[in-house]
């Protein structure tokens, strides 16, 4: 049987003793958890650290490879730059489509029709046509309409000369 030599008045009271035991237990559990958390955080940090180093090393290798392909990179950037500018050029208005349209019309001009003057700008085509008869003129107009090349065809002037025939001036806008 254990003998308590502490004087009765010095011995802690029951509630204080229980609180002390509780605090010690909480401290012990807390310390254990703290050590575990520190260990976990350190491990996590170290794993990430090595992953980061490995990634940096891979990046350096890639940078070296890319540096060795610098000529290719310059060519690709030049190509891109030129292509974007060429797109700008093609986006500009040009009379090329008007010339294409007129060529198709010229290929289908019926007999008795002579195109005396023709002018194309970026936006429109002006054409003077001499027709020997009203039939050939109507055939020509029919060619223009059925070609489906023009959005608008305006008849700007129309005259008749007994020696030359019908003279029509047309203003056309390509689709």
């Amino acid at each position: 049987m254990a003998i308590n030599l502490i004087p009765e008045e010095v011995a802690p009271k029951g509630a204080a003793a229980r609180l002390s035991i509780f605090l010690r237990t909480v401290s012990a559990i807390g310390l254990t958890l703290f050590i575990l958390v520190v260990f976990g955080l350190t491990s996590y940090y170290l794993v990430n650290y090595f992953q980061l180093r490995a990634s940096e090393s891979r990046q350096e290798n890639l940078k070296n490879v890319i540096s060795s392909l610098q000529d290719t990179e310059s060519s690709l950037i030049l190509l891109r730059d030129r292509l974007s500018k060429v797109k700008e050029v093609y986006a500009h208005d040009s009379a090329d489509k008007n010339i294409n349209a007129v060529s198709q019309v010229f290929a289908q001009v019926p007999s008795g029709i002579s195109i005396s003057d023709f002018e194309t700008t970026l936006k429109k085509i002006d054409m003077s046509v001499i027709a020997q008869s009203s039939l050939s003129l109507s055939q020509f107009i029919n060619v223009l309409i059925t070609s489906d090349l023009f959005e608008t065809i305006n008849l700007k002037s129309f005259s008749f000369n007994p020696t030359g025939g019908y003279v029509a001036t047309l203003e056309m806008f390509v689709k």
């Binding site: 060429v86 050029v89 500009h92 040009s94 009379a95 090329d96 008007n98 010339i99 294409n100 007129v102 060529s103 010229f106 002579s114 195109i115 005396s116 003057d117 023709f118 002018e119 194309t120 700008t121 970026l122």
Partner: peptide
Amino acid sequence: TVNVLDFLNSIENVSPIITIEKVKMSQ
């Protein structure tokens, strides 16, 4: 006529890039 039109149509097929701005034709 055919040759001139063919020539004008072929201009867009050469390099450096050329675009036609204006054409005035008379026969």
